[in-house]
């Protein structure tokens, strides 16, 4: 289990490391402006951020405060209008969409509010999918590893079922197992419990705490102060600025 966790996917050039100042995640003056024909809308305004390995960070704020935009910048799902973003040594703001996808597959596990498991693939295949794209693990290892991850999140008995047969909480566990597939150092998640009842939510948060104790870095967007309180550190956003 130990070796299993410590296969790191990140490797960057010295120059980039310097810019990130040794932090796992560094945002330098990041702004995001959405241009519409009606005018521009500033979602993020000169955000500076440093996050280190092993942190469990919650990002809170009202709707429209820019918290989802922030996490999308981190995962490379959306790109900044201005500023630099260094994550696991990569200059994320410089990569194109295809390169970002490949980088993300190895370095950031994304967990969505609506689970987003592929309905035609079994739970095990869903977990294996990122390994096939990422190519970090050998072909022979993949099924075993996927099974191990399902054991880790506690749904190994559902490995061959289709996602629709699972409850919401179980689907989110599968989604977390999928996020761990290529052993990324970072897990990013937007409202992971938004669609779950309070009991399932608690279990998911416990799982996150467990992952942090195993050395993962977790960023979680939530509008729930109670959940946010369980993180080590809270970043509060308001109208695109970090206020706390």
């Amino acid at each position: 289990m130990k070796t299993f966790w410590n296969k790191s996917g990140s490797n960057g050039s010295g120059a980039v490391k310097y810019k990130a100042n040794g932090h796992l995640i560094a945002f330098n003056q990041v702004s995001k402006i959405y241009e519409t024909s009606a005018g521009s809308f500033t979602a993020l305004r000169d955000v500076d951020l440093r996050i280190d390995k092993g942190e469990f960070v919650s990002i809170v704020g009202k709707s429209g405060s820019g918290k989802t935009t922030l996490i999308n910048m981190l995962t490379g799902i959306d790109r900044p209008s201005d500023g630099e973003i260094y994550v696991t040594g990569a200059a994320v703001h410089e990569l194109d969409e295809g390169e970002i996808a490949v980088w993300r597959g190895k370095n950031v596990g994304v967990v969505f509010q609506f689970f987003q498991l592929l309905p035609t693939l079994s739970v095990l295949e869903n977990v294996r999918l990122p390994m096939d794209f990422g190519g970090v693990f050998d072909r022979q290892e993949r099924d075993d590893r996927a099974m191990h991850l399902l054991e880790l999140v506690g749904i190994e008995d559902q490995a061959d079922a289709l996602p629709a047969k699972l409850s919401g909480g179980q689907q989110q566990r599968a989604a977390i197992a999928r996020a761990l597939a290529n052993d990324p150092p970072i897990i990013a998640t937007d409202e992971p419990t938004g669609n779950l009842d309070s009991h399932s939510s608690t279990k998911i948060i416990r799982l996150f705490e467990d992952l942090v104790s195993r050395g993962k870095t977790i960023l979680m967007v939530t509008h729930d102060d109670e959940l946010a309180g369980r993180a080590m550190r809270t970043i509060r956003l308001a109208d695109g600025k970090v206020v706390l």
Binding site: G98, A101, V102, R104, V110, F112, Q116, F133, N182
Partner: peptide, 17 residues
């Protein structure tokens, strides 16, 4: 489209998609 987004999110390159 959403599934393709998911493929992207879990690391599918242009070629893979």
């Amino acid at each position: 489209t959403r599934e393709i987004g998911v493929l992207r999110a879990v690391g599918a390159s242009n070629v893979s998609v």
